[in-house]
Design a protein around this nucleic acid. Structure first.
Lengths: 214, 214
DNA sequence: GTCTATAATTAGATAGAC
DNA sequence: GTCTATCTAATTATAGAC
């Protein structure tokens, strides 16, 4: 891992380059620990060790464990937005193409980067300052966007009979649990990393959530 | 909470009644803590406090935190089996009725008792001795039973085009995430405890996973 | 910016009085 | 069976040398 591979972030001088690297390594390690063990189960020492840094550097770079956690979420949410935006039909005029792209983007991302769904499943089981921050500042808008696209589909009669109230969790649960719970799936003899499995999974969800275009 | 309401367990004398009560109170408290904070995030002191017992009684009654955790899972799995068995069509000859009962039973249980799915989502994010025990000794058989029923539905052409490989996680994710993540859903303005919401959720899943009976 | 040392707290497990 | 007291280890946070 050579520092010179990372360009300085905007507004930062060359002298900060090393610091940015440490920050990104800490975030990367923290994403792994938070997703595997939850916020409370993850230790800052384990995170620092994985990042080849010292535990006290977390205080210097992020002040608290919770602020580090928020940086992890922002990193992952940026990635899921990219994964969805990369889908071919995402900007289509046809609401069916938009929802299909969203479903395929969610499956592809959950499979490639299960950490976001894992962290969500850890956090959403009980109220906390982190969960409130996450929903209010990061997730509420995304859910609104999904519902807007879904309502377009409903208006053209192509949506499956899924209530708007439950759509968000039904779709995300159906799309991501297999990958979020990959260690369990593997013990059950499933290969959640097999591209064929992922493809058939996405195809099945598209067929279920979108009504046949008669 | 009166001890006399609990009958002595089979093979136990009247003198053990108090002990059985403490055990059941510890299990009940532990289910709440494990589901909210995960195994690592839950503390045996908080569990004992909630059960009006002392932390060291966990050692006496269950020896280790992990053994207490296993008792919690057995309690919850017994409850989900009952919830499914209570569905009217579960013993039907028609495979469609069997799957419909399973879906409705899963939704009803996840809504009424989200703790099981919460604990599963905490545990299944990384390998552990607990996860291996759980899958091998408790879940593998249940998944086989589901797949057997599903294959019957496939053979009669009434199953949605969902691969057998991914069916288990797709169905459980679609049925339970809303309730497992209820604290998040509430922050989003959803009422996961509203019987109407639950009813429409179950209806939607039945319509999606079962092909129209043409 | 980095790193050592440590404070303050809490964890699970346990010994032994009652 | 219950409960007090305590052990060992791990936790986050922090002060200060370099």
């Amino acid at each position: 891992m050579t520092p010179t591979l990372d360009a300085p972030a905007p507004g930062r001088t060359r002298r900060n380059r090393g610091s940015e690297l440490v920050r990104s390594r800490l975030v990367a390690a923290a994403i792994g620990e938070f997703s595997a063990h939850g916020f409370e189960g993850a230790s800052t020492r384990a995170i620092a060790d994985q990042a080849d840094a010292h535990q006290s550097q977390i205080k210097y770079h992020f002040d608290t464990k919770e602020e580090l956690w928020r940086r992890c979420l922002d990193q992952l949410l940026a990635e899921v937005d990219i994964a969805i935006a990369e889908q071919p039909g995402v900007g289509s005029d046809d609401p069916r193409d938009v929802i299909e792209s969203l479903i395929r983007g969610l499956v592809a991302f959950a499979a490639a980067r299960p950490e976001l769904n894992r962290i969500m499943m850890h956090e959403a089981t009980s109220p906390s300052s982190r969960l409130t921050w996450l929903v209010e500042n990061r997730l509420a808008q995304r859910r609104s966007d999904l519902l807007a696209a879904w309502n377009e589909l409903v208006s053209t009669g192509q949506a499956a009979p899924v209530d708007a109230d439950v759509l968000y969790h039904t779709l995300i649960g159906a799309a991501s649990l297999l990958y979020a719970n990959a260690p369990e799936a593997v013990l059950m003899g499933i290969q959640p990393n097999d591209p064929d499995v992922i493809q058939r999974h996405a195809d099945g969800l598209v067929a279920m959530f979108l009504r046949p275009n008669t």
